[in-house]
Design a protein around this nucleic acid. Sequence first.
DNA 1: ACTATTTCCTGGATGC
DNA 2: TGCATCCAGGAAATAG
Length: 312
Amino acid sequence: MPELPEVETIARGLAKRVTGDAVESVWLGQKKEPLKSPASAIAATLEHSRIAAVRRMGKHIVFDLEQDQIYVARAPSPAKSRKADRKPKGARTTQAPSMMPAEAGVGARPTTTKAQWIVHLGMTGSLRVCEPETEVAKHTHAILRLSSGRELRFVDPRRFGRLSVAQAGDFDAAGIEPLEADLDRFLTLFRGRKTPIKSALLNQKLLRGVGNIYADESLFRAGLRPRRRASTITRDQLAKLLLAVKEVLKEAIALGGSSISDYVDADGEEGFFQLQHRVYGREGKPCLVCKTLIKRVVIAGRSSHYCPRCQK
DNA sequence: ACTATTTCCTGGATGC
DNA sequence: TGCATCCAGGAAATAG
């Protein structure tokens, strides 16, 4: 269940491995859930693009792409392009268009277009760099063939993950980055909100990147119960919460994230922050501070763990 | 405009 | 051993 620290770890690992590489061809599976943009748009944007950078925005992994245009194709009529988009079901692979230099026309100048490939891993999504001969895992939904000869594969059994493309600059995850938030901006997020603070922390339109584990851990460190109404929390308590959120996220990034279920980073390494969890997954166990048994309640459909004594 | 609840998915764990 | 049931959870959709 990749949250901000896991996504950060994965993005860093991928950046190390594929920055500067180019996408030669793309295969997309027939399952439609993982594709947020049309398959044709994803393939067209990725193919023949260089990966200029890989970074994290909230829980999204953003691949910054650059593509040299040899010539600017005449825009096809809408009806024609609609038809061209309708590909047969099953394996979809597009071939490189034959670009004859003559077609470029005299005086045509190469231009570079910039775009982005955006990956959300959902619960069980993973991106793997592997050799072409590696057996294709079950639930593989996308394979990018790279000019280095390797492949970048998107695997996601539960299909909560999402792939999309955007023109450069068009993609902007909602909410503020918790690690960049200052107190004033943090305070405005909760002003007048009657929702439980746990729900507010999970709301990506407010704060991006915090998920169930880090919400629970942050609330424990701040001494706040998950059900506390956001608007009833004092400025001082929110200041403490912001510090707790940043501290938890930074510590988790330093340890490579939390490995529960089968999370591993781009190198197949497990994270170690799960060993630092003080409340998450510890229902019925003694609080590490006061020995009171940790409670679990459901908020916004999520398991929420807290110490009834340390958190008010 | 907010807030709360339901839905989508599969694999692993549990119970009989 | 086998089969049914439940649970995990991010975010979009739906309902209130």
